[in-house]
Computed example of a mutant assay.
Amino acid sequence: MSDPRDDLVDRIYEAAVLPELWSAVLTDLASYGGADAAVLFTADLDSSRFVTTPNFADSILAYIEEGWFARTDRTRRLLAKRHAGFVTDLDVFTPEEFAREPVFREFLIPRGFGMGAASVINVPTGDQLIFDIERVIERGPIPPDAVARLDSVRPHLARAATMSARLRMQTVRAAAQALETVGLPVAVLGRKGRALAMNQSCERLLREMIHDGPRLVLADPAADRLLVRALIELSTEANASSRSIPLPSRGDQPATVLHLLPIRRAAADLFAAAEAIAVFTPLTAKHVPGLSVLEGLFDLTAAEARVARGIAGGSTIAGLSVEFGTSPATVRSQLKAVMSKTGTARQAELVQLLAGASLPVP
Rank of each mutant, 00 (worst) to 15 (best):
Q352I: 00
Q200W: 03
V123N: 02
T236D: 02
V351D: 01
L29P: 01
R100P: 01
D10V: 11
V361Y: 07
F280K: 07
A355K: 09
L227A: 13
A268I: 03
A312C: 12
A84E: 14
S59Q: 14
F298D: 09
L260Y: 15
L21G: 09
D89A: 09
T236V: 08
R194E: 06
A268T: 10
F56M: 07
F41H: 10
A118P: 14
T256M: 10
K192F: 14
W22Q: 05
A305Y: 04
V293D: 06
F69P: 08
W68T: 00
S152N: 03
A355D: 06
R346N: 02
S48R: 15
F280V: 10
A84T: 10
V136Y: 04
S244I: 03
Y13N: 11
Y32T: 09
D220V: 14
E14A: 10
V257H: 06
R265K: 15
L261G: 00
F324G: 05
L297A: 11
A355F: 11
R159Q: 04
S315Y: 12
T284Y: 02
I245G: 03
D46T: 13
A161D: 07
K286I: 13
P144A: 02
P214R: 09
I263E: 11
R225S: 09
A16V: 08
A238L: 15
N239V: 15
A303Q: 09
T281E: 01
Y32K: 02
K341R: 12
A30T: 08
A308K: 07
L294S: 14
L247A: 05
